[in-house]
Design a protein around this nucleic acid. Structure first.
Lengths: 264, 264
DNA sequence: TAGTGGTCTAGACCACTTC
DNA sequence: AAGTGGTCTAGACCACTAA
């Protein structure tokens, strides 16, 4: 037999999913359920924590417990890197994503912090640098309205970006066309990329920075961007609130028996 | 000031990360810490639940609380679909993954269950079928040793698979070369694919089926596989224990200003 | 000030495992 | 039988929010 708190949580979850408790609506107060004989305060509280961990509600002291509204997810396809967007046009990739999703762009939705740091091991490995080398780190926190959605930190080799707008510590997108436009103007046209993704539990710091609800996972994205000759010009690490994004990749089925399919 | 249970959990987490408590080793018993003045049983228990939710330990009644050993993750690249593997060779894709990771294949690591079902909405949409159409569902539960790692359910249109080995309800991989080989033999050679991924909190059922530790997220993968003429021959949904996998994708930077890059 | 959720205690009892 | 983690209670007190 399931514990009492689990049964209570399941009953409440059913009523949330059926729409009986609508998004934004308050759940019964803990003390009311204690009064109604659902158990002691600790027991009811445990049920509420479970619902919070399952992403169904958020609680706050003084306010109460309200049903979370599910924000539609943003689909990220490789077309967000389209050269036409940043080379010919005026958009940076992350804005293009938003336009594609039918959402308006607002100012001040990206903070930026550029610094010269010692390369973390993964960064040094991606750039093919000896450990301890210095790189430029451009850290952004991207918001949708007031709500942070992801962080993105790009690492560049000093010789690629020194003297460009990228190392200018002004907040905001890196000017017209974004970071890839700056690299293009500096003679580094990006050609191919690799993205690696995995999901995990956030650190305490990420919970704070991204204002994550209890129990929400994050997806970590490692992006390696190369020029046509294979030089790595950017290695970026992003941490995304899992409930807000989905990733899409289209590709041909590889055939190693056919030589012409091999990528240089 | 952080709550007492949080401070205790942090202290224990530090000692786990520093290696003072090695994987497999027992943490102090709850009652011992109560004895040692770390708080009441509920308080210490709350700290232990937090460590469990963070994936650092697993608890079981009668046994105690032991430090989890971190299994290395498996990297999934598109080369796992290489035609050479299933057309010319003897491997099915998921076995090839394991070979690439240097792990041995053991029998009985995949259970299979084939049934004819009414297509769920997403499946009908992917196959371009009217809602309520019937499809074949081939559901697998894949294990690594005793531990389940992911589920994978493939949906096929009846006219593509009827009369083939794929609808034979025998457990185990779909024979020599796996499902794509069967489709190939039936005249449907796969040509290109789309994968969509996102992370979320598992359902209660998935926790049981995949034996997930408390707090571990899952990654849901939707895979659409097409022939050269664009016919969808397989739509598959996988649910993966997040801590065991990473995905990798290589691609060219798209350029919509160049016509020849457009995919049909 | 009143009401909310969050923490904490001391102790009882339960479910499960090992000896 | 003894020892483990898990549940539950009744009540106290704390932190935060709103009127």
């Amino acid at each position: 037999m399931a514990p009492k708190w689990r049964e209570l949580a399941d009953r409440l979850a059913d009523r949330i999913k059926s729409g009986e408790y609508a998004p934004g609506q308050q759940l019964p107060h803990i003390r009311d359920l204690v009064e109604a004989g659902e158990g002691s305060k600790s027991t009811v509280h445990q049920a509420y924590k479970a619902l919070e961990a399952e992403g169904l509600v958020t609680s706050s002291r003084g306010h109460g417990t309200v049903v979370r509204s599910q924000t539609p997810i943003k689909r990220l396809g490789i077309s967000r890197y389209d050269k036409a967007k940043w080379r010919d046009g005026d958009e940076v990739a992350f804005i293009a994503d938003r336009v594609a999703s039918g959402r308006a762009y607002r100012r001040g939705e990206q903070t930026q912090n550029v610094s010269r740091v010692e390369a973390p091991p993964a960064v040094a490995a991606a750039h093919g640098l000896p450990v301890g080398s210095e790189v430029y780190a451009r850290a952004r926190l991207v918001k949708e309205g007031d709500q942070p959605t992801h962080t993105l930190t790009s690492y560049y080799r000093p010789e690629h970006v020194e003297g460009t707008r990228l190392v200018d510590p002004t907040p905001g997108p890196a000017g017209r066309g974004g970071g890839y436009r700056v690299l293009y103007d500096a003679g580094y046209e990006i050609d191919h990329m690799k993205e690696e993704l995995f999901a995990r539990i956030p650190t305490a710091e990420e919970v704070k920075q991204l204002q994550l609800p209890v129990g929400e996972p994050v997806v970590e994205l490692h992006r390696t961007t190369c020029t046509a000759d294979g030089t790595v010009v950017e290695y970026a690490i992003g941490v995304h609130a899992a409930s807000r994004f989905a990733w899409e990749y289209d590709f041909k089925v590889p055939d190693s028996a056919r030589k012409e399919e091999v990528r240089p």
